[in-house]
Design a protein around this nucleic acid. Structure first.
Lengths: 233, 233
DNA sequence: TGTACATCAGTGAACGCGCGTTCACTGATGTAC
DNA sequence: TGTACATCAGTGAACGCGCGTTCACTGATGTAC
């Protein structure tokens, strides 16, 4: 992140990265509340107070990990979307959704870190909110560019309903420029359903009833594509 | 729960209840990982080892709280459904969904306890799985009874797809008797979307973009009612 | 190119704290005869 | 109805443990002249 101009700064960046790598592993092994600076330092062969050169507090380390997780997920999704032909909105949607699931299943503990129960006294700084929006931005781009290529009619039962009564139009317009406000609700529901699915899958709510989450996820993504007008029923 | 026949057993049940009440409050104040037997005992004016008369271990107390939460939610939803005319499937669906949200927003920490990040080393006993199914059972009853009164055609894009490839038909048939297997997917998606919404709402993902979660929730519930054929588009 | 000084990574000891669980015990309450 | 005994709630001390954070320090590395 920071520009390492000399060797001291380079070493510093490397150490920060090493700390985060160990911290991520510990979170994976014993969950967020099991993450302790003392254990991180032990694993790195350092004395615990040494970590305070890099992170002023345990929460600061946590914030860095949360930011990284959002950005890592965001980048994965952006890249998956970029690999597909721009004009094929349905393929872009499917690729993006699958990228979210791939990231989540490969990084379940980082998923839990950002989409699971918020940590007790911890308050997310605004920087994380912006990083969290990256995924939604991709969905917005797909929707707005598909609308431009082939404009669609607003679904019947959305007509005459003022979304401004429950959605923050200006905020959403900034995240999803080019998308019609009438589509915000559908977009948010799609986003919610994808992550609701992953939360249920990863947190064990589907145990017993869902045999093949892979297949089911694809069916869910297809259903959402229909409701988003990205695919014919 | 257990039948208190004599005064000693009565006192025991009351003490168990008192412990749980304090534990629930502590979870609300400092989240699950902040729950400690020592603090519970302090609040009750007992010595910490006294709690071991009632719960053999911290996890046992946690299990009891999780079970209670599932059953409390299940009961709320069952009652909300029961208050509506049997024949009005849409009204039943809406009442049930709203009951879920009411319970979740009134008991956010117990919601997090059962639908949030699973606790680290803790493995849910099978008893909790059954309690967790109560909510799904209500949705199943609404669907099957609405199908009986007014049979509906299977949605076009569900035809020819073998749900048995990704869903455990037998398990779902036991939870939602009378519902056609072709409807399982829609039912699971609806269930997922409701809880995905509540998780996003309670865990802060909607901060900034959703102004009135109440209104938006009703819109989501309506959209789902349409896709479940409980309401005309 | 060499030297003086500033910067900064890491040390080690300490602070004050909280935790789950075990164990031998006291004393009140309930039960059986 | 009264007594002897069993049951069991709660005590108090102890075990061994881990935590975040502070502080004065050493010594290596970088910078300016």
């Amino acid at each position: 992140m920071s520009k390492a101009t000399n060797s001291r700064a380079l070493a510093r960046d490397a150490q920060i990265e090493a700390i985060k790598v160990v911290a991520r592993r510990l979170i994976a092994e014993k969950s967020v509340s099991g993450l302790s600076l003392r254990e991180v330092s032990r694993e790195l062969g350092l004395v615990s107070s040494a970590l305070y050169r890099y992170f002023a507090t345990r929460d600061d380390l946590l914030t860095a990990l949360i930011l990284d997780a959002y950005n890592d997920l965001g980048q994965s999704v952006e890249r998956a979307d970029a690999r597909v032909a721009r004009a094929d909105a349905y393929a872009r949607w499917r690729a993006s959704a699958r990228a979210i699931r791939r990231w989540a299943t490969h990084n379940p503990h980082e998923y839990a870190l950002i989409y699971g129960t918020p940590v007790p006294g911890y308050a997310a700084p605004t920087a994380t909110i912006e990083a969290a929006a990256r995924v939604v931005r991709v969905l917005g781009a797909i929707l707005s560019e598909s609308r431009r290529t082939a404009p669609r009619s607003v679904p019947k039962h959305s007509q005459g309903i003022d979304v401004g009564r429950y959605l923050a139009i200006d905020v959403l317009a900034a995240i999803m420029p080019g998308v019609a406000p009438e589509e915000y609700l559908k977009a948010l529901i799609a986003w919610t359903t994808i992550f609701g699915f992953l939360t249920f899958e990863l947190f064990g709510q589907y145990v017993g009833s869902v045999k093949n989450a892979n297949l089911m996820f694809d069916r869910v993504v297809d259903d959402l594509a229909v409701s988003l007008n990205l695919k014919a029923a």
